[in-house]
Nucleic acid binder design. Structure first.
Length: 553
RNA sequence: UGGGCCGUCGCCAAGCGGUUAAGGCACCGGGUUUUGAUCCCGGCAUUCGGAGGUUCGAAUCCUCCCGGCCCAGCCA
């Protein structure tokens, strides 16, 4: 607990719950739930909902359940269930109870019979097309189904036989009997149950009918004693139906549904359909590709759980359709890693530098602070030799204005070491710089050079002790702030979203790096040892984010 | 006159009839610095989509207008 999490900001949902608790509503209890459908991996948008639901519950010493909305067995799988549990835990939250909508299939069935007995539901034997036509349009009312007035007995019988598997998919549905002329299309006799003769991960082949979201969700909430059912804006139109179902059923618990805006993040795509497409069309290497907006992808990229929580806190909760800039996310991870990541030196695109006025075989050990502002982070040994590597962009034969790095005839500081001066450039026949021959000022170790100012400082790695490594650079997956606006997914993909560097050299201390350990490579950015591919024998680092760069190029 | 919802600084976002209209990100200066990082200090909405109205007083209440989002799955 070295660093405190940011102060909680007020938002309209917190205000509502505050009032409810103060008024003693629900006996002052607060119970929420995070209800994903297990049909894909969680993404940063889900993180917003997770932080909200668990956050609200935590704030009032309440409870938050993890509930899988598993009412559509065709799209759902155990792989996703497990992944979701891991992601929620990794984010740092503990659910009160783990539930499944399918736990309530028996109750749901009995409640549906209750609705039929009340003449509030009926079996419709129209085809899907007929149902759609009779629903009307946005501006025209619907027309009642010819099956709308079936007797209660017939409905009960038909519904039972639907359950018993006497009919094929699509032959009948159970509909609520509400108002075919409602301006709200969700109230035009919405479907409650459909026939689906498919195997369910948890209930097996017991059911040949499955309840719809609108019917299942409110009942599940009520069964679990949820007090505040938080969901995204597109469900606003469903709230009257949510309330209608619970009112007919006269449940003792009637949760309050409150809607908030889903997250939109620039240069990413947060629709599940599109994310699946990225994976299936192999635009990325998988759900956990470091370029993905999935929790597991961001984790692999090097985002920490705390940084994601911080992000969710910073963006707030409102009903505005807001677009969040990438800079917000990047600030969150930089803030945290700046405080916590040990510093190291790594050269991504090496040029050899020979310090000619040092004897052949010269070797020296320096002690470097692991963190410039935090002494408790300790020190490490860094070997210095006659030959070192520096990064190619830290040298310019013809420097741009205000360039502070190495230039022919000029001096620069090798970080933590001597000031060197470039005396000679050695190139190959194509003009590519192969080696720089430099001299050093022996009187500049730990002190400023006399009689002149040397502004530039560059990082380096001993050419004899450096360790070869692979470093993966990541850039936004899309070239457009709103990739959904592109003609196609591929048209918006950034061809430079992943750059793999195979000739990098890292300082020896990095030999001890463990998978998922974070570092700052000085002057370059924050990197993480790849969760899967990194080994001591062949190190692999992913760039999480660059350092802030205010050098006006 | 289909129904529902939203418009406060470039991007988020507090604000709920009396405040000099919070804060963060971004940006622009200046200082410290052996990371062009960090850190520090300063700047950044006489104005709240627009127009009317109510009021001693309006971003906050009312009316109209403008702009944007969602809904016609036997998906969630």
């Amino acid at each position: 607990m070295s660093r405190s999490e940011p102060v909680e900001a007020s938002n309209f949902i917190r205000n509502i719950v505050d009032k409810d608790v103060a008024a003693g509503k629900n006996d002052g209890q607060v119970v929420t739930r995070f209800p994903p459908e297990p049909n894909g991996y969680l993404h940063i948008g889900h993180a917003k909902s997770i932080c909200l639901n668990f956050g609200i519950a935590g704030r009032y010493n309440g409870r938050c359940n993890l509930r899988f909305d598993d009412t559509n067995p065709e799209r759902e799988s155990e792989e996703y269930v497990n992944a979701i549990k891991q992601d929620v835990s990794w984010l740092g939250f503990e659910w009160n109870e783990l539930r499944h909508a399918s736990d309530y299939f028996d109750d749901l069935y009995e409640f549906a019979r209750d609705l039929i007995r009340q003449d509030k539901a009926y079996v419709d034997s129209s085809t899907a097309e007929e149902v759609r036509e009779m629903r009307g349009s946005l501006t025209e009312p619907g027309t009642p189904s010819p099956y709308r007035d079936r007797s209660i007995e017939e409905n009960l019988d038909l519904f039972q036989r639907m359950k018993d598997g006497e009919f094929n998919d699509g032959e009948h549905i159970l509909r609520a009997k509400i108002d075919m002329a409602s301006g709200n299309i969700n109230m035009r006799d919405p479907t409650l149950y459909r026939i689906r003769k498919v195997h369910h991960v948890r209930t097996g082949d017991k059911w040949s009918i499955y309840p719809m979201y609108d019917y299942t969700h409110c009942v599940s909430d009520a069964i679990e004693g949820i007090t505040h059912s938080l969901c995204t804006l597109e469900f606003e139109d469903h709230r009257p139906l949510y309330d209608w179902v619970l009112d007919q059923l006269k449940t003792s618990c009637h949760p309050q549904q409150i809607e908030f805006a889903r997250l939109s993040l620039e240069y990413t795509m947060l629709s599940k359909r599109r994310i699946i497409q990225l994976v299936e069309d192999k635009h990325v290497h998988g759900w956990d590709d470091p370029r993905m907006p999935t929790i597991i992808g961001m984790r692999r990229r090097g985002y920490t759980a705390a940084s994601l929580r911080d992000f969710c806190e910073r963006i707030g909760i409102t009903k505005n359709d807001a677009w969040i800039e990438m800079a917000v996310l990047e600030t969150c991870i930089r803030d945290q890693l700046n405080k916590e990541a040990p510093r190291r030196m790594a050269v991504l695109d090496p040029i050899k530098v020979t310090i000619t006025d040092l004897p052949e075989g010269h070797e020296q050990m320096f002690s470097f602070a692991n963190h410039p502002q935090d002494e408790s982070a300790g020190t490490r040994e860094v070997p210095f030799t006659r030959e070192v590597f520096i990064d190619r962009d830290d040298f310019a034969e013809v420097p741009p204005p205000k360039y502070q790095r190495l230039v022919p005839g000029r001096e620069v500081r090798l970080r933590g070491s001597y000031v060197i001066k470039c005396e000679e450039i050695i190139k190959d026949e194509t003009g590519k710089v192969l080696e720089l021959r430099c001299t050093h000022d022996p009187d500049t170790l730990g002190k400023k050079p006399e009689g002149r100012k040397v502004k530039g400082v560059i990082h380096w790695v001993s050419a004899v002790h450096g360790i070869p490594a692979q470093v993966r650079l990541y850039n936004p997956l899309f070239t457009l702030p709103d990739p959904a606006k592109a003609d196609s997914l591929e048209a918006a993909i950034n061809p430079e979203s992943e750059i793999v560097l195979n000739s990098c050299v890292i300082e020896p201390a990095l030999q001890q790096a463990e998978s998922e350990q974070h570092f700052q490579f000085e002057r370059i950015g924050y990197f993480v040892a790849d969760r899967y591919d990194h080994t001591a024998a062949s190190p692999v680092f992913n760039r999480t984010v660059t350092l802030r760069d205010t050098w006006a190029k």
